[in-house]
Amino acid sequence: MSEPILQLDGVVTDIGRYHILKGVTLDVPRGQVTMLLGRNGVGKTTTLRTIMGLWRAKAGRILLEGQDMAPVPVSSRAALGIGFVPEDMGIFSDLTVEENMILATRSGPLDPARRDWLFAAFPPLRTFWRSEAGNLSGGQKQMLSIARAMAEERRLYLIDEPTKGLAPAIVSTMVGALRELKAQGASILMVEQNLSVARALGDRAAVMDDGAVVWAGAMAELSADPALQERLMGLSVEAH
């Protein structure tokens, strides 16, 4: 296997007095989708935010294609090609959908071909292009948040629970768009609670518990082993 695009080695993150990450070690392979799974509160979101630099790692190393991220500020991490979809979507609600997309393209205007591809993947974006993003529904905001990360080609996508609270039809749209992204060879690290979605998209899986990765392997292996799921997460893919 080629060198992972992202490596976490013993990453420790505290938020205030709380020890959230207690030594996360994880490899994210290039050109694959890695699902970060686990129960609520085990540190999945904190892991993504630490990779993005929004929380500072107290110890351990984060390497993006071999480059140590410790001295790299948040904005430069984005400039290095990390696209980030936060759990709260991070939509600028007073700006239009178009303005949100303009902000997501750092290298120049939004490429028309890419815009058309995003319109095809997320039709409501075309419809509401000139509307304030604050007026969108929850699902449409999530589409905008993901489209914003996809506005330019990125080296790595960090996506935090893209299907949280969405209706099945919208989830289907999300999965379709992310499949297309995956087909283009994108490297993705995604937090997901919906195991059906994880199974549909994931190549690899890493399961977290109590601030550390307790199991990592092929998504197919996890999907095929209900006992393993039960032991790691207290639930079963078959139940979804």
Binding site: A78, A79, P86, E99, R106
Partner: peptide, 17 residues
């Protein structure tokens, strides 16, 4: 304008707030 609403996200999009 975006920074007034969500400075953290502006940084995450690659701008030095």
């Amino acid at each position: 304008r975006a920074g007034v609403q969500n400075g953290e996200m502006v940084e995450a999009l690659g701008y030095r707030l």
